[in-house]
Amino acid sequence: MSSSSISINWTPMIVGFLAGLISRIISLKSGNTHYPGYPSGYISQLALAVIAAMIGSSVLTSLVGKQFTAATFLTLAATQFRDVRNTERTTLSQEEKLILVSRGPGYIEGIAITYEARNYLAMLVALLTSAITLVGGLIIGIIGGVIMIVIGEIFMSGGRVGDIIDVEPAKIWFDKGTLLYVGEVMMMEVGLPHPRERYEKEGLGVILTPKNQRGQAVLWNISQRQAITYEAAAAVGVQKDIGYPEQTPLCRMAMPAASGKAGLSILPVERNMDKLIRAVKRTPILEASKWNRITSPVINREEM
């Protein structure tokens, strides 16, 4: 671009680049999906963020400088970000076999899509901010960049389980001697006496009650409940290892009553009910669970 005869205005590119980068870094910190967990994970995400912000911010500058080849190449580079989703999915799926409470495929897909979208968002923020700076100058560009970042954050922050589902503590008890119940919800059959004693002494249980139809639909999704279980186990810990399948935390619907409520049972390391409820409420709503209204017997019963 240095060969260009007209002088290049670098301000839009720099402001746009910074806005895009900041937009991506903010989302890296606010992630509560326990990923990335290691510095190496952050570095690779940061490198992608720099590239994304770079692409977004330099498109307009190269167009203004009449460097159409450069602009075309930048759009080509943008398509490379499709691979981000695959990389995330592969990493998390491999990890799935090595963790005691799995995230579930729905959660993994959600995380992968979010990471891909975050890079595109950084690109968009960078592009729009550089456009604003080009038209309005440095000060307006900076203000516009901040607004873009805020809009991006609002746009990208999906709902939480706590928004549409009530979470309340419930008693853990055994029916017929062996059937584990959380409140009115039957969870599973525990055939051995020692785990039963442990559940009665140390177990924690919560009941999830949907506030509305959307909550109903979300709760009937198996992946969503697995994600809730994962978040609960990550928050309070879980007394479990290979060879102790009956101590797995579970989230099950109230069946056969199909009242739409769900129960969650867990044998925590840290017996802290507030922390457990907070973790359940903070679980993100998975994209896959939003459109499953048809699988909810309660909603369909009401509509008939």
């Binding site: 062996t178 051995l192 060879g243 399948p245 009956e246």
Partner: peptide, 20 residues
Amino acid sequence: RERIAMWLTRITNAIVHDLH
């Protein structure tokens, strides 16, 4: 019966159910 069942579950990661 419970001892055998417990050993089997620890060894094989199988889940014990009581048929009463």
